[in-house]
Design a protein around this nucleic acid. Structure first.
Lengths: 225, 225
DNA sequence: AAAGTTAATTATGAATTCATTATTCAGTCA
DNA sequence: TGACTGAATAATGAATTCATAATTAACTTT
């Protein structure tokens, strides 16, 4: 018998918060759609009580919008929201960079370097899937390295909201090359433990991502469908 | 008939989130205490359903901690939490300062200057109550001035969590004087529309607040009661 | 047929009920 | 006395029920 594994004892509503959030982030539930309580209850095999509890939480996280007596709708990702969210995320990233430089040990940094190399290889092979994976790993490791739960939570929520921007996946060649350059700089700064430099670079990295996103958005506006 | 006033149509659970959060922030519900569902329901005149919905939201905001089958407890304000929260708040404040400089109009700045003078008067009169009020007004106005909902939301939540610490330590004369100096600098930078300067000063202001708090807490540890 | 009105249906918010898990407390034994 | 056991009690999580508001459908009326 294994006593080290703590008994997984999660409540329905916690489980549902995760599941529903994923449905929103993965774009299964589409922006603007209303969340069909009954259907979801049936397909998930739960009663309305825990589902509704979960919706309240999702609403406070900004993934859905509640309208009194009219239920929940999936929050739409507006341009304005992106323009508001990215600067906040950038500020958090800056802090992540500063703290990570101060807090990470050399083993962790080596692991990041490994992911960084994976990322470069994926870039050379133009393998978007692998690139996103490695990229995620790096950012995740940096956040962990910052050793700050509060920072991690808030970052996680904002990042999830922004990840819904569907054009995110359509990375232009130009932006991709720029992102790689930025990552090279970040890696160097991290290894040099240049906290201020890494913070500033990560902030910039995020703001450049916004610029690219907005540019892609504008292009789409002009060529709808 | 007045059509400009939007119909106040709030749901019970929304109301309860506000009320309960206040009870926690105002230290009516004390850290570590368990939240007595039944009693609260009776005294607030609602059933358990909306109250529990509210608790789930409060939990996701970090004001209470849920334990499966054991209900909710008021989250305690640990030293570690303060050390984690303040840097995040400071990062957000920096952004607030930068954006406020860019976005506020001169009328708004004048209003802040008025609150600033109120604050100075309260300081001279050693009126803590009035000081806190004016201080709140200033910070609130700056946040509004940043014109960023996302920033406002996240700032509000973190600030509320940290505000609970004021019951742990009092404002020392030394820190009070320092805070006034910092506010003077902030006012000048705002009027000069020095975004970078205001951002940095507000960040520092927040980190100095943390230092003062930690110092006061240490002193208290040595002199318990 | 189109717009407007009313009735039927559905969905939602909140209260209540029910099953299960913690907690308390009396009783037992070392 | 003090630790253990187990029944009684209380609380919690989730399902169900109920009242009401929103939506849809049916029916006028022009």
């Amino acid at each position: 018998m294994n006593l080290t594994d703590s008994i997984k004892r999660t409540t329905l509503h916690e489980e549902l918060v995760e599941r529903l959030r994923n449905l929103v982030v993965e774009d299964v539930l589409k922006p603007g759609e209303k969340v069909p309580e009954k259907q979801l209850c049936d397909s998930l095999g739960v009663s309305r009580t825990p589902l509704r509890e979960a919706l309240k939480v999702l609403a406070s996280e900004g993934f859905v919008v509640l309208q009194a007596n009219r239920g929940a709708r999936v929050a739409s990702v507006t341009r304005e929201e992106l323009e508001n969210t990215f600067p906040v995320l950038a500020a958090l990233e800056q802090l992540v960079g500063e703290l990570a430089c101060q807090q990470m040990d050399s083993v962790e940094i080596q692991r990041i370097e490994s992911s960084h190399k994976d990322m470069l290889n994926a870039y050379k092979a133009r393998d978007r899937q692998a690139y996103f994976k490695a990229n995620q790993d790096i950012h995740q490791a940096l956040i962990q390295g910052a050793r700050n739960d509060i920072l991690e939570n808030h970052h996680k929520l904002l990042a999830a909201r922004v990840r819904r921007a569907r054009f995110m996946a359509n990375l232009s060649d130009e932006r991709w090359a720029q992102a790689i350059d930025e990552h090279e700089a970040m890696m160097e700064l991290l290894k040099a433990r240049n906290a201020d430099g890494l913070g500033k670079t990560m902030k910039l990295h995020m703001m450049n991502k916004l610029s690219a996103l907005l540019k892609a958005l504008e292009a789409e506006d002009e060529t709808p469908r």
